[in-house]
Design a protein around this nucleic acid. Structure first.
Length: 593
RNA sequence: GGCCCCGUAGCUCAGCUGGAUAGAGCAACUGCCUUCUAAGCAGUAGGUCCUGCGUUCGAAUCGCAGCAGGGUCACCA
């Protein structure tokens, strides 16, 4: 059993025996003892002094005595004001290391593939322009949360819902027909998604001119925006698409094909992927039967003009449109349909949507309506709502050209990683391929860590200069620590398994061991909070604890064989823990750098 | 304007269900490489935890009000 649960139980027993206070052991909180005091776990006794009718010091001492008598593992305790610090015997920590050192997956749960899956949707791009920094946060989060839930034992399925149809795609198609002169990714050497994005911008440029001209000839702005010939034509193209017009469909397939090739390249570089990809062109009609069902059930209603709505005023929200008066569906309608489809496809235990917080309202409504439609799994829908990424000079605006392109950013990071590595000159003996791979994982390590270390729910500032920093609280720092440890472990050769565990630890070793010990509970807490940031912070703490230990404690140079083995095993455990936690973040960790 | 989120060191961020003197990194300044990788370690300096009131033995954390910032309120997705 885990030491903290054992301790909690002993405390609960003591409370009952000493003062007749009945408590559930689970409600007893033990916190890590602060560094400046002696001890490992601290119980705050203030909550019990009233019932015990004694001073905090007296209560702490009495509980301390009782627990110490009950648990041999508790070697001693000290009391400072109302704080009871338990001192856990070294033997507990050393046997923990001896037991777990050989477990390369310590702290990582096994996944049962037969269990009902947790379905995570993320990425979900539009196919009219390339991926940018905002998408990067989404992709990294989606991937990492999937890894995190899997590390906590969930059977995770990652899905992507590609928005491959709609007016925005028609705009790119139309502009390409008009101004493209048959340009292709091959003919131009341009990545497919960038090429299509180029024509999306092109459309916007010409469209704005048309609107401007119309307004100059006296047309109202709103009217002009609707009447501009390009817009009219894009609309008619969308209509032809929906009617299955062969020509339009062929062009649509061609250009989407370019985009997918481009996306795949970016996904590969980012190291993310999916178990299943849905396309909106296949799912956008879903949800209409649900509307009928809702009408039959009386949870939806039809207005005089024929449009269908859901009344959410009883829930403190507005009325929500589900079918236009012409019978066509809206985003919400589709999302209801795809949720049902996904529920059926996977028999999912949970449906997680990694979508920015600007859609909080949408998902609130989605869950409500699913509930009203009688789906008991509505409360299994979880919107993993993440904050926006801002730049030092403000928000990203595609129209103002202030977007940070995903591919450019990765290129930039790789270039910097190469420069930094060459400067250090430690990797000259690696082959060119190995060097290239190293630069890649360092670049992505820096980028991913920079983004994932921030609490997902919070808006974050992306400062390009800081993101490529390789010192301090960064991905490369942790990668470096791993490489350093691996170097020691390689030099140590085969390490015997520790049999006797009677070593005396120094404070630095204790720090490392205790941090390692906290790995399983950290993963569990992070998974419960859907927060890769908690894992990132843990990895950083562990690396820091190790480096501090490494600095002034001999490992291979240690003469005492027992101690040396113990320390090497610590190294092995830390290396594994760093590798596994970084893997949760989608960050690869090098053997040397 | 209604609803939602947010405000911690010069900057970027931690601080879990309330607990001891609020912590890291960057930037600034000091030291430490003939010794297991200095992408490191050790240290100095830097705070009205936005403001006020309240709950409590105890508040950065909970509640209310105010101020500042952001998001959202489409027959767009």
């Amino acid at each position: 059993m885990n030491i903290t649960t054992t301790l909690s139980q002993a405390v609960a027993d003591a409370l009952k025996n000493l003062y007749g206070i009945e408590t559930d052991a689970k409600t007893i909180v033990l916190q890590d003892t602060r560094k400046e005091f002696k001890g490992d776990y601290t119980l705050v006794v203030f909550p019990y002094v009233k019932q015990a009718r004694k001073s905090p010091e007296a209560v702490a001492n009495e509980i301390g005595e009782a627990v110490k008598a009950a648990l041999p593992l508790v070697e001693g305790f000290n009391v400072i004001k109302g704080f009871l610090n338990f001192e856990v015997a070294d033997s507990y920590w050393t046997s923990f290391v001896a037991e777990k050192a050989a477990d390369v997956n310590f702290g990582m749960a096994e996944v049962d593939p037969n269990e009902a899956p947790v379905v995570v949707e993320y990425s979900s791009p539009n196919t009219n322009k390339p991926l940018h920094l905002g998408h990067i946060r989404n992709n990294l989060l989606g991937w990492s949360v999937s890894q995190l839930l899997a590390a906590n034992g969930s059977n995770v399925k990652k899905v992507n819902l590609v928005n491959d149809r709609g007016i925005h795609i028609c705009k790119s198609m139309l502009a390409w027909l008009r101004y493209g002169n048959g340009e292709t990714p091959e003919s131009s050497g341009m990545k497919g998604d960038h090429l299509v994005g180029k024509y999306y911008v092109e459309f916007d440029k010409h469209y704005k001119e048309e609107v401007k001209h119309l307004m100059e000839s006296g047309v109202e702005e709103e009217q002009a925006k609707k009447e501009a010939p390009l817009m009219v034509e894009a609309q008619s193209m969308l209509k032809r698409w929906e009617e299955g017009d062969k020509e339009v469909r062929a062009l649509w397939e061609k250009m989407n094909g370019w985009v997918y090739a481009g996306f795949d390249e970016t996904y590969n570089r980012l190291g993310v992927g999916f178990d299943k990809v849905y396309y909106e062109s296949n799912t956008y009609l879903l949800g209409k039967e649900l509307v009928q069902k809702g009408l039959d059930m009386g949870v939806l209603f039809r207005k005089e003009d024929g449009s269908v709505w859901c009344d959410l005023t009883g829930d403190g929200l507005d009325q929500k449109l589900l079918l236009r008066k012409d019978g066509t569906s809206v985003y919400m309608t589709q999302d209801l349909g795809t949720a049902l489809l996904r529920h059926k496809d996977f028999g999912a235990e949970r449906l997680i949507y990694v979508v920015g917080n600007e859609q909080d309202y949408h998902f609130k409504v989605l869950k409500l309506i699913l509930g009203k439609l009688g789906f008991e799994w509505a409360d299994k829908v979880y919107h993993l709502s993440y904050g926006m990424v801002e730049l030092p000079n403000g928000k990203m605006k595609s129209r103002e050209g202030t977007v940070v392109d995903a591919d450019d950013l990765i290129d930039e990071m790789e270039k910097t990683a190469e420069e930094m590595s060459r400067e250090h000159g430690k990797n000259d003996e690696l082959s060119p391929e190995e060097q290239k791979h190293l630069y890649h994982i360092l670049a992505l390590g820096a980028l991913k860590y920079f983004i994932l270390k921030v609490d997902p729910t919070k808006n974050m500032l992306f400062n390009p200069a800081e993101s490529i920093d390789f010192n301090g609280n960064t991905g490369p720092f942790i990668q470096y620590t791993h490489a350093r440890i691996r170097s020691i472990v390689r030099k140590a050769g085969d390490v015997e398994t520790l049999s006797a565990v009677s070593v005396t630890m120094n404070e630095k070793e204790r720090g490392v061991v205790k941090t390692l010990h906290a790995l399983p509970e950290t993963v569990a807490a992070a998974a419960a909070a859907y927060s890769p940031a908690m894992v990132a912070n843990y990895a950083y703490d562990l690396a820091k604890a190790f480096n501090s230990f490494y600095q002034d404690t001999p490992i291979l140079r240690e003469e005492d064989a027992q101690l040396k083995h113990f320390r090497v095993q610590l190294c092995v455990m830390v290396a594994n823990a760093l590798k596994n936690t970084m893997n949760i973040l989608g960050i690869e960790v090098p053997e040397r750098m």
